[in-house]
Nucleic acid binder design. Structure first.
Lengths: 255, 255
DNA sequence: GAGTGGTCTAGACCACTTC
DNA sequence: AAGTGGTCTAGACCACTCC
């Protein structure tokens, strides 16, 4: 490698840097729409593909996001989520000075699939409430959620206000308390159904969060699957040495 | 929307589906190299850009990954990481029947930057060991790590075997015990330095994990930053209601 | 040296959103 | 109706890896 760098910056990174700088300076603010791809193309005098490479790079970084066929927008600050907390979405979003919203997509009584039955610890074909919800922060859709509830434990559940915290409903109306959750999460791409509801292009990067909830009797009350847009969430938690062992001696964990 | 779908599947998704199927069937196995882009282009009789769209979609899904200028490979199974466990990388990878490897990139004594000083709770310019390491699973690079150690607490730390667990070194040689960690993580793209070491294209999607470690005296011993490739890791943890409150009453947490 | 992936051009048509 | 993003073509040159 010579002293004078032979590498020149690729054009798409020049465009990226320019846009990134303007976003960081606040010239494009959170939620703002960027100029159209063709406008950018003319400003920089490059092919449209090159503009797209720049935009896709910024998307991966989480600086901008795309609404399918609607354009590119500046990404708002991430919401912080503590998986060890039992706060509901409405609570932890509000606590961060943001405005949460919930929307019910569908709710029905179905027969447990093999996947659901295994996790809910019930028989295949057993009664399950299948609930899809959509969640917003400051008006932006951030994830959709699929909840499967062990219906045997919660008669008339579908009559309850299903945009509220389901955990709270279980506690107040059925005396069932959430005492333990198993959580797993990883980056994953958003499928057709999820993408359509989130108004993003199918295949967009997301963040998957799975959750199994247990009540005071060790029963699985519900299993949830959350499909987040990848740039809306930051996970934060604290752990103490040996506490897992300590907790198992206090609660009886059945594994 | 008419009964007979007017939508035909885009070509790049046809290619994606074909490759995804062959991977799922095991015709391409974990770690295998896919045919070159030009070979695929000829097989499908499409433009190379279309092949790339398919490959990029599969990459986002985590089915394949790319080594910069080397080609596309089938992604191995994810490693499961429990952020609440105090197991070291070597331990939790081995426990999952995989082969871990650590490599030291660099280790030096430097002056604390503002960023590091604030987190280590020391003065700006104070002594800090800056350690970069590279981590492998079954021979594949999965993340690089930047560790900053409060040097005042650990004289001659750089003489120790720095590919081993640093936590263990602190305990065995200095009697300093890790009792608490703060962790935060989110998807983020990999910068030039990280990408070069991981042999990926700069801007590739990654998973960022930050960690602050506290000892039995409440001191911050080290702050770590891990830059994972996005498809190598799944986070898994268990939480109990009210345990946070319980733990704070047992340990004194200084916040 | 051959082949590969990384970048780029200068267009095009379509489905869809927005006005 | 106009404009946008989504998809696609048929090439090209370069830097780099691999043999």
């Amino acid at each position: 490698m010579s002293e004078v760098a032979a590498n020149h910056t690729p054009k798409y990174l020049v465009v990226r840097d320019y846009l990134a700088t303007r976003i960081e300076k606040g010239e494009f603010k959170s939620g703002d729409k960027l100029p159209s791809e063709r406008e950018l193309q003319e400003s920089f005098d490059v092919a449209r593909v090159t503009i797209r490479d720049a935009l896709l790079a910024l998307q991966t970084e989480g600086l901008i996001y795309r609404l399918d066929r609607r354009g590119w927008f500046v990404t708002p600050k991430r919401i912080i989520y503590n998986p060890r907390s039992t706060e509901s979405f409405m609570q932890y979003v509000t606590a961060q000075g943001r405005v949460p919203k919930s929307e019910l997509i569908s709710a029905e009584l179905i027969e447990a699939s093999e996947w659901a039955a295994e996790r809910l610890n019930i028989a295949v074909g057993g009664p399950v409430y299948s609930i899809w919800r959509k969640r917003f922060v400051d008006g932006r859709m951030v994830f959709i959620e699929h909840v499967r509830v062990n219906a045997a434990l919660f008669p008339d559940f579908l009559d309850k206000p299903l945009t509220d915290s389901l955990t709270e409903i279980m506690y107040k109306h059925y005396g069932v308390e959430l005492v333990r959750v198993n959580i797993n999460l990883y980056p994953a791409s958003l499928g057709a159904f999820q993408a359509r509801h989130l108004l993003v292009t199918p295949g967009t990067l997301g963040l998957y969060i799975g959750r199994n909830s247990y009540d005071q009797f060790g029963r699985v009350t519900n299993v949830d699957q959350e499909y987040w847009v990848h740039d809306a969430l930051e996970i934060s938690l604290e752990a103490h040495k040996d506490e897992s062992a300590l907790m198992s001696s206090i609660f009886k964990t059945n594994e």
